[in-house]
Nucleic acid binder design. Sequence first.
DNA 1: CTGGCACCTGGAGCATGCTCCAGGTCAAGC
DNA 2: GCTTGACCTGGAGCATGCTCCAGGTGCCAG
Lengths: 127, 127
Amino acid sequence: MAVYTPAEAVEETGFSLDTLRYYERIGLLERIGRNAAGQRRFTDDDIGWLGMIRCLRDTGMPIAEMLRFAALTRQGDHTIPERIELLEAHDRAVERQLDDLQTKQGAIKRKIGYYKDVLAMDRAFTC
Amino acid sequence: MAVYTPAEAVEETGFSLDTLRYYERIGLLERIGRNAAGQRRFTDDDIGWLGMIRCLRDTGMPIAEMLRFAALTRQGDHTIPERIELLEAHDRAVERQLDDLQTKQGAIKRKIGYYKDVLAMDRAFTC
DNA sequence: CTGGCACCTGGAGCATGCTCCAGGTCAAGC
DNA sequence: GCTTGACCTGGAGCATGCTCCAGGTGCCAG
């Protein structure tokens, strides 16, 4: 099992060191192990958990809900049904997000098309 | 051409009245017309522009960039090429957002699948 | 031995995007 | 005439999610 220095964890996860410390402070990460000098040493498990956090964060889950997920995870396997529920609810939210984004992207593309038409008209009249 | 009271504009656009006033304050909306009593009266054009704003906002465009778009729009038709550029750049950003969201949704679905497998294993051993 | 660098902690500060409030105006219904 | 309700303004406050800072420790290269 590999261990990662703070700099390596930053590299692996894409979170800034300040963000990692912040996540630990608020309890989104369990207290990270330390070496003799008190410096953090991240494990593969930590890095894996941070991967999950990144997924949830980047799909728009608020920190408060990630904290709930973290709490469930710490409470052991009997919370797996609740975790499934939480993730399925989030998955549905992501689905709505995708639909909404696509609809609105369509509108933006139409607007671009409209502007291009205006330009084409312009050329038709001035040439 | 219809006019809309503040309450009707809220209804039409889905923005709160405070948000509409805020958008006007920062110049995202041009100064909205007033009646004799100084109350706002929104036009169809205002409502249309707010629809555009909602599209851009909900697809993640920061206010600073919407302000740039608003400024271009106010400067007249000769800025249409720039507006196309801005919207096309944004469209590409939305595309990346969609891709990223889909990838991460996949990871979440796999995690849900994993949890369900754990539950199934559990049942297999305890029954 | 001495920098210099990566790291530590607790706490303050900040960027974004609203949201709320106090104090006031106007018009309409009872 | 009086209340009620929608609206006004300028300005303060807030929720989220980091980000930065001061002051200090420990380790390694030269």
